[in-house]
Design a protein around this nucleic acid. Structure first.
Lengths: 238, 238
DNA sequence: TATCGCCGTATTTTCGAAATAATGCAATGA
DNA sequence: TCATTGCATTATTTCGAAAATACGGCGATA
């Protein structure tokens, strides 16, 4: 019961109360703006503009951009600055394909090695996710940031016991990239589906230690999501 | 015949003749120094010291360190600077395990999708690797940097046709991390083995499209290498 | 004797401007 | 007209110092 979600946010303060650097705060905010689409794919990121927007000096901005480019959210071109990473159908397909490969491995390992602590974290993650609405308001298309966070935690909990922090890191990166596509997909064609049934089936198969079934469900879940995103009128033309 | 190895080096000049940024040059040099052991695992990386050593200002140094920390060569701790990533047996094992998982996938895909261009690149990479001695001087233990570069190219060529640049990137990162362990292993217990037979068997199986065999040989190759490194008197106590 | 808080020093982080490189445009010549 | 060159403008990269923060020692207190 003790360990809550790591819940970091707002202006350089992390959950522990520790003050982080400006660079990290800027990193978080630019990242959010890219994922949410406030900074459009392909957009040139000029130093001056960012300095104004995020009220920071040169160094922290640059540092944030460098970190973001390792995450794949930003593209760095030597001597000609940074820009928001472009999106494309091909990229999305590659992303999903890679994610399926890696998470299949991770999930199988997790199911094989997971102890009762793993099970409990998973049950808890699913429970929490199920109690929160996916959209802030059923009528509007506004996403619920809390749901996004819990959704991420659920998927990470699934593979948490895979035994490799490196693999976990890769999967996390792929998740975040995919998440960007999800967020950018206009909601119009999106809310038709409620993935909670799928989530439930996946996690039940996982704690049942039925690896084949769990993997099958998980990969289907990803592929279905990808298809919906592809078919949404996400503007791929940038 | 046209495309040679990308052969970047020395002081901000890349093979194309293009001048790169100071930050990139510093990044390359610190990286080399970490991989070669000139900067010891765990060592605190103080700004002043680095500024002197690499003759650069604050910004490029910091930028380089940030990039290195995404690669896993450097650890960043908020408000308390950077240090060279530590090494340990556990880390090495995790590294090898993860690498086996990812490269199995990548190699199977590569064998399935690889066209004749892939085959030719692989043959060429193997040929070049075979013509270069692993050690500069059979008596001394000094590694041949050229061999290291060709060795990397060989392993990347194997999986180059896997169809996912993301996966390729992950494998590259894992390779470079492993390479660090290899370099740090004192040569004393190392040069007993010549891996060229293994390399040949692997690539022959690959262009024979015998995936099971190729994977088996490749994973064995990695595990054998890891074992040798573990048994060398690499000082794991930092 | 152990613990806490204060203060000086060492180190990291941030700033704003200078240096360097890319870009667009106009002028020139074929 | 088109390609090329040189110049002015814009943007990126780098510098060195100032500001902010962590670290370590010392003395006061219980």
């Amino acid at each position: 019961m003790a360990k809550l979600l790591t819940n970091e946010k707002e202006n350089g303060k992390h959950s522990s109360g520790q003050v982080s650097t400006l660079a990290t705060s800027v990193y978080d905010r630019i990242r959010m703006d890219i994922v949410s689409g406030a900074l459009k794919p392909g957009k040139k990121l000029r130093t001056d503009e960012l300095r104004l927007r995020y009220e920071a000096g040169n160094s922290p901005i640059r540092e944030a951009l460098n970190r973001l480019s390792s995450d794949g959210f930003v593209v760095r071109e030597e001597q000609r600055g940074f820009s928001v990473a472009a999106i494309s159908k091909v990229e999305l397909q590659e992303l999903v394909k890679t994610r399926c490969w890696l998470e299949e491995t991770a999930l199988r390992q997790s199911i094989e090695n997971g102890d009762s602590e793993w099970e409990e974290r998973l049950v808890l993650a699913h429970h929490r996710l199920s109690r929160v609405p996916r959209l802030i308001d059923p009528k509007s298309a506004a996403r619920n940031a809390e749901w996004d966070r819990l959704h991420r935690e659920f998927h990470m909990a699934l593979i948490a016991a895979c035994g490799s922090r490196l693999l976990l890191g890769f999967c996390e990166q792929l998740h975040d990239q995919s998440d960007r596509y999800r967020q950018l997909a206009v909601a119009a064609s999106y809310p038709a589906r409620d993935p909670m049934d799928e989530h439930e089936a996946i996690y039940l198969a996982a704690i049942d230690r039925d690896a084949d079934k769990a993997v099958d469900l998980l990969l289907n879940h990803y592929q279905k999501t990808a298809k919906i995103i592809e078919e949404s009128d996400l503007s791929f033309d940038m």
